[in-house]
Design a protein around this nucleic acid. Sequence first.
RNA 1: GGACGCAUAGCUCAGUUGGUAGAGCACUUCCCUUACAAGGAAGGGGUCAUCGGUUCGAGCCCGGUUGCGUCCACCA
Length: 860
Amino acid sequence: MTTTDTVSSTALTRMPDRPVLEGLEEKWVGQWSEEEVYAFERPATRDEVFSIDTPPPTVSGSLHVGHVFSYTHTDVVARYQRMRGKHVFYPMGWDDNGLPTERRVQNYYGVRCDPTLPYEPDFTPPAKPDPKRQIAISRQNFIELCNELTAIDEKTFEDLWRRVGLSVDWKQLYTTISPETIATAQRAFLRNHGRGEAYLSFAPTLWDVTFSTAVAQAELEARQYPGFYHRVRFTRPDGQAAYIETTRPELIVSVCALIAHPDDERYQSLFGTTVTSPLFGVEVPVLAHPAAEPDKGAGIAMCCTFGDLTDVQWWRELDLPMRTVIGRDGRLQRETPSWLVHPEPYETLAGKTAFSAREAVVALLRDSGDLDGEPTPTTRMANFYEKGDKPLEIVATRQWYITNGGRDEKLRRRLLDRGEELAWTPEYMRHRYENWVEGLNGDWLISRQRFFGVPFPVWYPLDAEGQTDWDHPIVPEESALPIDPMTDPAPGYDASQRDVPGGFTADKDVMDTWATSSLTPQIACGWERDDELFNLTFPMDMAPQSHDIVRTWLFSRIVRAELENHTLPWKRTTISGFVVDPDRKKMSKSKGNVVVPTEVLEKFGSDAVRWRAAMARPGADSPFDETQMKVGRRLATKILNASKYVLGIPGNDPATWSVDLVTDPADQAMLAALDGVVAQATESFEAFEYTDALEAAERFFWTFCDDYIELVKERAYGARGEAAAASARSALGLALGVQLRLFAPFCCFVTEEVWRWWHDDSIHRAAWPLPGEVTAPGDPAVLDDIAAALVAIRGAKSQAKASMKTEVSAATFHGPEDALTRLRAVKDDLRAVGRITGNIAWQADEGPITADITLTPSQP
RNA sequence: GGACGCAUAGCUCAGUUGGUAGAGCACUUCCCUUACAAGGAAGGGGUCAUCGGUUCGAGCCCGGUUGCGUCCACCA
């Protein structure tokens, strides 16, 4: 990247009399867009590119300050890399497919999808949606509404991101429901399928009864759930009782066995025998299995198909029969199960929800005398779908899976190795990844029984009886993608053969959102769509995200890239912490502690919010605190005012600035010190430690303002001749230019505003300052000595409660000999800033620099 | 229960290879000084969670304890 920037001498005409922060966002957002400052231009080679796998926000959700912080962290790095001359590939994506959008559409328009209904071309949603009486509409109508609403939401999101100042290239925007993305997701799936990495399986799966869909391990959330222990009697062949305790008595219908730990003394005599279930008279074996925990409940568990994941394990390992009664709607099946010896009691349960059935069973048990004592309340942990509010059921269904190492040690090892290979910021976050991969207990379930998502590009043949042949799925050629099996006929068939015996039927499921977003590197980089782009950007350089989605998004992308590309999808991942409320609780809608970003941005300005974000180190949670925003705002204001001062010095002309004119020792010392700061900031950015870069720049800037500017003020105005003034002006101007660039990644608006007072091109395409660019053969220690001397002078005046303007009739400086020598060289500047009119004496001794000051009595 | 992180001034946090405890905010006092009163200056304030070890010397290294947070596991 070359800059065609020209330095303008017309600074004074572009500089407002009283510059303010208000309005800078609007002004520069517009101009950056017009000038295409952040457009990605394809260079010749990969090493000229810095590519970023931006997390695509869920547009149906809402953004809070936490999002603003973490996206700012990425932007700060992107801006640094751009200034280093990289062609920054920084796309934005909208995650608009999936269940969150469906749910939002249902609430927003008051509709629900009923795939059995026909399409109504003229359908318009009700003006006032009634959330209690959702209108049933066809799948196509429903998808149209999803597209309509996401378009509105995406506009809001884009406006916010622009306002925050994200330097994304909006021409690289992708969405997870676009035809290109659908084609990419389907293509990747077909490749997985072709290699045996994607497979269809009929198995017990975690099932959300509210949304009527399967969910994956990564989407689980364990929550406290209140329940009751019921002590229930089973009957031994000799008529004796065997008691179990259960929180789900309705599952007695499904009981397959009683199971205790093999070493449990209490149940040795029962192993190998059978017992009979209460109410239904079903005879089940009593078995031993090490997964049974003697301390839980009665120590002997009722194994049902299925109450929990342990039941699944027992069912599988002990080869138990499948006695499912809870259906996909969360209700007990209507037909009386065939295995019941006494079917009569079931009549009162048929068709009931699990909750109602539980009450009914308890009543029955009470009547029959099989309930021992009263149910005792307990709190247990239950698995929930993270977006749902009813505990998950386990239902045997046919689902698509992708291998993820959960059932394959070799693949698991490879994925763990990838975690090793990946660079992590901060380093310790890699443990979360390792924990997750090591704890996987099954493959990745990717199919969802929903509507707004990427359809599986799959059909199944129907035999002569119209039965689906699940074992021989029909897939399309890749060239036909994207396809929708619900509307496109299977290859080799025509539309009339849909759903008729001897014909074909569509796979009606869609892929889970994560199955699509696991491919964001491939989607954004143009995999199999734009080879040139792909080769220039993939594997990507940086994958930013917050720490809660290491197990989902980060992991799933590594899986997909490993299976498809045999590489990591990126070199490095950077993990942001959360913004938490003052009590250090995570912000969430349900807690009502969410801070809306637009208000904060409005109140303090984007630069202030960005500053605060950058002060949060990678991985660290930070509490939301408005007073911190004020500090950022103060910095932005200070940048504006200090710049105005430097450029407003009479006769100061940027075209004349040159390090060759910097001859004064104070000026040389300042530039030398700044050069060290540049080195520090650069080093920190190279390590992705943007906070350290900011702190280094800021620490220097305040000294620059409070000490250095004050020190050279009079000289810059020409009090000691033209050469001395030129030295100060060049030093001030050059240092300002360097510091603006150091701050540019953080306070992108105010630095741009100031920069343009004398440049025609954006600061964000200017070169990052590097050590040696602006420096002088000075001793940085002089600046510290000056600061110490100023503290001494000001302290004396402050203690005397005198104005800083008060004249000093005599001053004696104490301190180490070498420090005094350095101070003598800047004596005239000290005299000016301290208003020292009388004698200056120097007294060498040990200890810090101090001054004895005699103040001239103030004139009446 | 497992893993990880944190514990330093009233608050938010720095503290490099061990060598006299730091910043900002808040607080106190002062100052309208030709960039900035949405400003500036000066100042007070800390047994570095706790116990033990290594060392001439520990906020830092090692071990234990306690408290907090996050992720995972936990439905009998």
